[in-house]
Amino acid sequence: MMDSRDIVFSIVMVVSSFVLTYEWLGRFKPNSANSLIILSAIVMVGALAAMILSLDIRLRRVEKTLDDKERSLRINIQSIESSMDKKMNEVITVVDEAMDVFNKKSYR
């Protein structure tokens, strides 16, 4: 269900958050990179990646459900259409027979 590229993108997000946070903290003071800040940034980006992947899975599930319902609806409509065709043909046959009887009586 989940593509390997999604997992790769998530890993890239986490690694880039580590590098970005480490380098950004190093700009202010050398060797001042606080590991708690870096860990927090990694967890935050990891949670964001997980949320995005979860949303993608939910959207795919909703899309599959809609496709299934559309297919079911299409089959039901075709069934109703064929049923209506049969009934209309029966009505047309009865009306044609009635018209023939009426025409025969009117010409006598």
Rank of each mutant, 00 (worst) to 15 (best):
I38M: 03
L48D: 02
W24N: 02
A47R: 07
D67P: 04
K29R: 14
E63P: 05
V45Q: 01
I42E: 07
V94P: 03
L39T: 15
K104P: 00
V45N: 00
L39Q: 06
L73R: 11
E70P: 06
S79Q: 10
G26A: 14
R74S: 03
S106W: 00
D96P: 08
G46M: 10
L20D: 04
M99F: 04
N76D: 14
N89W: 02
V15M: 09
V95P: 01
F9V: 06
I57Y: 03
L36R: 10
A41K: 00
K104H: 07
L39M: 15
M44P: 00
M88D: 06
R27K: 07
V8I: 13
V91M: 04
V62S: 09
D96Q: 11
V45S: 02
N89S: 06
A47I: 15
R74Q: 05
M2H: 06
V94D: 10
L39W: 06
A33C: 00
Y22E: 12
S35G: 09
Q78C: 10
A47N: 09
L66Q: 14
I11Q: 08
M44A: 15
K64G: 12
A98V: 13
D6G: 02
A33D: 00
V101R: 09
S82R: 04
R61L: 13
M51T: 06
A49Q: 09
K69G: 05
V91R: 02
S35L: 13
L25R: 03
K104F: 07
P30H: 09
K86P: 01
E81I: 00
P30M: 11
I77R: 11
V94Y: 01
R60E: 09
V95K: 03
S82K: 08
V15C: 14
I38H: 03
E90S: 13
M1K: 13
S16V: 12
N103C: 05
L53N: 09
D96G: 10
D67T: 15
K86E: 03
A49F: 05
G26N: 15
E97V: 12
S83G: 13
L25Q: 02
I92K: 04
I11W: 11
V14P: 01
A50E: 07
L53T: 11
R61N: 07
K86Q: 02
R61I: 07
A98M: 14
G46N: 08
V94N: 12
L66N: 12
M88C: 05
F9M: 09
L59R: 13
D56R: 08
E81K: 02
A50N: 10
R74A: 13
M1D: 09
R27V: 11
K87N: 02
I11N: 07
T21D: 04
S106C: 08
N31V: 11
